[in-house]
Design a protein around this nucleic acid. Structure first.
Lengths: 339, 339
DNA sequence: GTGAAAGCGCTAACAA
DNA sequence: TTGTTAGCGCTTTCAC
């Protein structure tokens, strides 16, 4: 028990050579004779030698790790973004460490500081809703550590970003509904202060305009992001005399609520009511097979963010330029399988 | 740009004292005069000194971190368990690092090795479904690093564990349905090879027996864990002449499917059909307000696992004993709010 | 009460 | 081709 890990020194002693020779041999440095190189590598394998990353990082000032801070990990959107990040980090042979700020700025600061202290080589983060002060972010730049923000970004800091095209996605979704024959498309969304809600609303309005459909403000309705609230809201919408013939819902919870309401009222989806739900992720499986979704494509968000980060890490500190990548959401059309 | 972090040496130089004095002063070592202690601490704060955890860990052979390996992070169950772990780690002033094995044993081994290399002080993990070889687990013990397994464990390794009481939970749920007046309780579950399915089935059977209700094998039905499959299965179940008057569903997807099927058939939930869904988490909000759920209590699982780990870390290597903690699921009864 | 020195495991400039 | 030395930032024994 408590078997000490094998060090470079152990190898050196067994082979009666110096540690520096071992170090070089392990890196396949051609300055070292092939014979010793092979001997070292063979023994290393036998002893299952693994370099101590702490020592390496302390010495080289680089840890081959990147840190990711997300507002919450209990969210398929963020969890999936992380997956995307891990994919490309893997390709670059970097380890990824994730921590969650739980929507609290103090935790966000703590996490960032922790990552900085750990000498991580790059940081990817998505801000808390409450983040209004940016000292900790500036500190990252101050240290010269590459960084990219995604999804929850801020105009107040100059840094590379990966964002969603909320307005364009909403435009696509609503256009799809209109092309399907809808004349009165309702928009179910959340509280006014949510930025992505505002952007999607913009796309909604533009789509109507582009199709010469007059805007009917009564079709824009807001409620909290819960199934129950959405269902009640939809019950109200669909109970009106001039009810909508289509609903664009801002997320899948709302779409599910809308469908439940429609069923309760005896409406057939999608014949009587077409629905497109904006989805964070694969949860669309909860929806009826005939409901189309806008998939926000979180894997792509993650991959783009990581790619941007690695681009920066390769550049010299002065050559770093700021980029902004927009990830497009995919419209996944599902046609009714009713008989 | 590229501002070098402040070190103990910087402080020592500014104060014209030795680094060892600074080191001691920062730890409030009473051997150091109060005057210098205060001077050092003041300057440290001014310069925003933060110890380099790499150097500390390298020197002290302890990193104040624990590692968590989960099969997947895109799962509210595991994500929530991690949250529970973080809570108690926070209380102990430990940092938590999480990595996902994506249900692949190679990745699991890689993660474990990474954590070991990083000299993490403890490891909490939940095995891949495919984990059948345990060399990497034994290596943890071999190194003398405290470890606890949760949820997905194995009888093949002697180690502390935190598990769910699947059988007892199922027993509670089914008893609840019977007490509510159900005579024919159906059990909707997944493929046969899933261990928790087997355990819950055991609880189901025992509950029937304890209530003198004869087992009707036709009420035990299996399908894949998707909404669509569950709905179809329920349509079949509920379409029978002697249909069940209650359904115990093994997870919330299935419960949702069952409810959708009931509605489609014009049955009122819970009057015509009582439903209890076994839930991983808070997703029960998708369910109708009148559906009760067994909450698996993942936060508690996480907290218990971490608590067990810290207990072990405090003990001397030889005094470590193996414990097994069972976390009980909570029955959350929701009564119909129908008017 | 404080400092000098060694060492954690590794890398790299400089010598030989 | 290989070894010696210094040092990354910190802790800790031993001296004074």
């Amino acid at each position: 028990m408590a078997n000490r890990p094998v060090t470079i020194k152990d190898i050196a002693e067994k082979l009666s050579i110096s540690v520096s020779t071992v170090s070089r041999a392990l890196k396949n440095n051609p300055e070292i004779s092939l014979t010793t190189r092979e001997a070292v590598q063979k023994l290393a394998k036998e002893l299952k030698y693994q370099p101590n990353p702490l020592a390496v990082a302390l010495k080289t000032q680089k840890s081959n790790t990147i840190g990711v801070v997300v507002p919450q990990i209990v969210s398929s959107f963020f969890a999936t973004v992380v997956k995307g990040i891990e994919q490309v980090a893997d390709e670059h042979n970097y380890q990824v460490f994730v921590s969650s700020s739980n929507e609290k700025i103090e935790k966000e600061e703590k996490n960032v500081n922790g990552f900085l202290n750990m000498r991580m080589d790059g940081i990817i983060l998505s801000l808390t809703r409450a983040t209004t002060t940016f000292d900790h972010i500036l500190k990252i730049q101050d240290r010269g550590v590459p960084m990219v923000l995604f999804d929850r970004t801020s105009k107040e800091i100059e840094v590379s970003k990966v964002v969603a095209d909320d307005a364009a996605a909403a435009h696509t979704a609503v256009t799809h509904l209109i092309n399907g024959g809808a004349k009165r498309v309702a928009f179910m969304t959340g509280p006014e202060f949510m930025l992505f809600g505002t952007n999607r609303l913009r796309g909604y309005k533009k789509a109507l305009k582009d199709n010469n459909i007059p805007l009917d403000e009564t079709l824009i309705s807001r409620c909290d992001f819960t199934y129950e609230d959405a269902k009640n809201l939809a019950l109200d919408l669909l109970g009106r005399s001039n009810r909508p013939d289509a609903i664009f819902a801002i997320n899948d919870d709302m779409a599910i609520g809308a469908i439940a309401a429609a069923k309760e009222l005896g409406l057939n989806v999608p014949n009587d009511l077409a629905v497109v739900g904006f989805s964070n992720s694969r949860r669309s499986r909860y929806m009826e097979p005939s409901v189309s979704t806008m998939d926000q494509n979180p894997i792509a968000v993650g991959r783009e963010a990581a790619t941007l980060l690695f681009e920066q890490m390769e550049k010299t500190p002065e050559a770093k330029d700021i980029k902004e990548v927009v990830v497009h959401a995919d419209l996944i059309v599902r046609t009714s399988s009713d008989k």
